[in-house]
């Protein structure tokens, strides 16, 4: 019984929203809009668990005096400070809090975000090196085509040989397009099959214990 109700819910809702896709009527649209809003409300409660987990994770680290445990104080302090400033900053008399909240976002969180993004460029170089080292035929194909595309989008490529931008464009339009399309077919079928398995209750991992 504990598992039958969730299974029934998935089946009924799955069929309902499959059918809804084909019905453009007012009622159907209203049901869709309501479901969207409801899923936002329902999902909002999951964040309580998520934050509970994070706090628990770091409290445990502190309690057990794990290596580098003092960093957990940083996380917990930053979490509560940011949430406190953001929520109470809405109150007019406490607007200085929202100013702090904005500053923390702009000058602390955002720069770290951009820095992590920027690190990607370094990793690109090491990934290219790794591709070069892998001596399989496939890896070489990847590397050569990647190299042509890189040359194709900078003026230096055309300076080396006038046809490079054309070849780069051809690679994008023909083999690249064909491969992506072929992959998408497979992905589409795989996704549809996974959804179907969930709705029909064949895939029950999410219920745990194989649904027994």
């Amino acid at each position: 019984m504990k598992r039958q109700i969730p299974l029934m819910l998935v089946l009924v809702l799955g069929i309902l929203f499959f059918v809804q896709f084909f019905v453009p009527s007012q009622l159907s649209m209203e049901i869709y809009q309501m479901a969207l809003q409801w899923s936002i409300v329902i999902g909002a409660f999951a964040i309580v668990l998520a934050i509970g987990s994070l706090v628990n994770h770091h409290t445990l680290k502190i309690k057990r005096r794990k290596e580098h445990f003092w960093n957990s104080y940083v996380t917990l302090f930053a979490l509560f400070a940011m949430a406190f400033l953001g929520i109470f900053g809405r109150i007019e008399s406490l607007s200085f809090m929202s100013a702090w909240f904005r500053k923390l976002f702009l000058y602390v969180q955002a720069p770290m975000d951009s820095a992590m993004f920027a690190i990607l460029a370094f990793y690109m170089a090491s990934a290219a090196y790794r591709a070069f080292r892998a001596r399989s035929k496939e890896a070489m194909l990847l590397l050569i085509s990647g190299f042509i595309i890189m040359l194709g989008v900078v003026p230096f490529g055309a300076y080396l040989w006038g046809r490079i931008p054309d070849i780069a464009e051809w690679i994008m339009m023909v083999p690249n397009m064909a491969a992506k399309r072929g992959i998408l077919f497979g992905v589409g079928l795989g996704m549809t099959a996974t959804s179907l398995k969930i709705i029909l209750g064949i895939e029950r991992n999410w219920l745990g214990g194989g649904g027994k």
């Binding site: 992959i183 497979g186 992905v187 079928l189 795989g190 996704m191 099959a193 996974t194 991992n205």
Partner: peptide
């Protein structure tokens, strides 16, 4: 792609 969906 599809191999991800075939994994289970």
């Amino acid at each position: 792609g599809e191999e991800l969906y075939a994994a289970s």
